[in-house]
Write a protein that binds this DNA or RNA. Sequence first.
DNA 1: ATAGGGTTAG
Length: 682
Amino acid sequence: MASTPSSTLTPLYESNNIFFNSFTSPHNFTFPLKLYKSSIRTPQVSLQGQPHISQPNNSQNPDRKSKIWVNPKSPRATELKQRSYDFRYTSLVKIAESLDSCNPLKHDVYNVLATLGDKIVEQDAVVTLNNMCNSETALLALKYFQERLKLSKEVIIYNVTLKVLRKNKDLDRAEKVFDEMLERGVKPDNVTFSTIISCARQCNLPEKAIEWFEKLPSFGCEPDDVTYSVMIDAYGKAGNVDMALSLYDRARTEKWRIDAVTFATLIRIYGSAGNFDGCLNVYEEMKALGVRPNMTVYNSLLDAMGRAKRPWQAKNIYAEMINNGFEPSWGTYASLIRAYGRARYSEDALKIYKEMKEKGLELSVMLYNTLLAMCADVGLTDEAVNIFEEMKSSGTCQPDSWTYSSLITINSCSGKVSEAEATLNDMMEAGFEPNIFVLTSLIQCYGKEGRTDDVVRTFDRLSDLGLSPDERFTGCLLNVLTQTAKEDLHKLTICLEKANPKLGYVVKLLVDKEVVEEEGAFKKNAAELLDSVTTDVRKAYCNCLIDICVNLNKLERACELLDIGLTLNIYTDIMSRTETQWSLQLKSLSLGAALTALHIWMSDLNKALEDGEEFPSLLGINTGHGKHKYSEKGLAGVFESHLKELNAPFHEAPDKAGWFLTTKVAATSWLESRRAQEVVAV
DNA sequence: ATAGGGTTAG
């Protein structure tokens, strides 16, 4: 075994939080509650009260009994016609509004419609129904028009009625209306089908949508571009990406004009299937076909890049969108906040937040939560407090358990135990039970303060609430062990055993002197354990276990764990060699794991030296810049002093943050002098 | 705006 002075490896108790945050980020958790939309969307603003529409006192008004003859083909005539149509349209919208709020009784509905007078035309029916939201009164209105009008295109008023039913997500009624159409001998067309199909899609019944699409040919209809687009969307929603794409292919070979909306649909499908390059390819293909992107395309792309955790691409697309003269919509901002928030682009996210406020756009709970979770991630305590205050005073949304979780996490991470406890009380007063996320944060919080008994109490609280520990919760507990004094470790080992017996056993082998270990049992069990947990927590578990070893001065065990980590590909590319440089990559390692890796790397260098291998011109250690807000010092800072203690000739590169470099000559002479010392020491 | 697609997501 080589000769790293192990005393320098010992005190790990406070600093390191490099792996800590993989547990505390609320966005890493799968929240078990399904949240529903808090309010129904307000209906469209009516045209009522727009001043330009009727101005009877205006002497310029051409609608007054004017004797001037106007050439019907002149632009002036077109304008007059337009005005008179605008006027008619406005009154029809008002009728539609009255019908929406009227009793669903034949008598009442007919009375409202009687105000239209006797000279109604087919288009009046279309406009009225098209502006309605109430299914029941719409069906009565449909009857009224059927009784009173000679309809030359009856299918159209059926189609607009179907739109009303779709607004209400009422597929049952839509299907009944369809049957009625057939009974009356009205032939459904593509509009009928696309409306019913999108209704089924919006009802979250994509199988139904497919069913309707499949019966389209039996009514003598050939799907057209819009029907394809709707179906592509429905297949995507049903998770049948292959069918969606093959429809797209079919639409393409049948030379349908594929417009921006369809491309946006395709981008959404690729995005929700996790194929983010697919999204970008569709976008390129679209541009190659000469289709100009619209807002939907941009918003879908931004959303996809957010899911892909590629905030820089979101940024580029947004810039392009602005350059092309588009005004960002609510959806644009929401996508950006999510993209930036998840990726911890805090400055960008906060800028968007500011812009939304300036424009008077309301944020949803989800968006507030995204911002708060981001603040928790990067340690923006003051901003989080501000955002929370603004959220409360917005009057439009109430904090939910996610909100409180983030706030508790923020307090916990900045070591504000009593504030965290107070926030938990607020949460319970607001009617939310503490959940696993909150308890996970609290465990971290107490652990960091060395309040082991409170950690144990919080651990027990979880099962009292009828919850069982998940991998993150257990991982946080394990992380607490890396910060706990030796004499308290046994209290936590008991908890660990309850949470995950295998993990408990592995830790016991490290901590408990009385456990008798069979030859190789530690390595075997540790490997089985790490293999049994999901990949997202493996590295964190391994890092923690190594830290515990390092704390307890069990360097051999630490090396065994690192070896397991390398074998299971938990750590990749830690040590690499090119012709010009040999590197040690420590970026995602905890301090203990990094020190262990350094130890192994130095042994390898020694061996290479012994074997007379040629060293490259440069040797480098990359610690990453370690700019994490919650840890006073990143890995870089700790490493710098550690390397000094070892008299190692590595020096931080001025132009490459987080890199410590040395030359062939310096490295060789350093290793040789260490070996000489070793001989003296023996 | 004036018969069919698009969302508000964790």
